[in-house]
């Protein structure tokens, strides 16, 4: 079985050569992932493994989105927080008229 990430040589459409400034929320997520590594809680290899383990539909949501999902999975696996807590917090933020990437 070949993983969702193992795509070298597979057919794909024409290059869409685009770039944009990184979204503040994804920059924040990168910083969180970096902080987790620098504190010794996680490794880049664990992070990659969590990315590769995502279901195809989730993996395909986009680079930043799959990183978010993988970070969440890894933190839950490590017992550092649960997805339920994250979802609950998101709901609270929404109820409070949440900002985002502050």
């Amino acid at each position: 079985m070949v993983g969702v990430h193992d795509i070298g040589g597979l057919p794909a459409g024409p290059m869409i050569i685009e770039d944009h400034e990184m979204e503040p929320w994804f920059k924040l997520l990168n910083a969180i992932a970096g902080a987790m590594r620098s504190r010794g809680h996680t490794t880049i290899h664990e992070m990659r493994r969590c990315l590769e383990s995502l279901p195809q539909g989730v993996y395909d949501r986009g680079y930043a989105e799959r990183w978010s999902e993988a970070v969440c999975d890894l933190l839950e696996e490590k017992g550092l927080l649960t997805k339920a807590e994250v979802l609950e917090r998101i709901a609270e933020m929404r109820a409070a008229g949440g900002g985002g990437a502050s």
Binding site: E23, W25, L28, L29, C72
Partner: peptide, 9 residues
């Protein structure tokens, strides 16, 4: 996902 990053932090 915007809120998720804040929530996780």
């Amino acid at each position: 996902y915007v809120l998720m990053a804040d929530a996780i932090r």
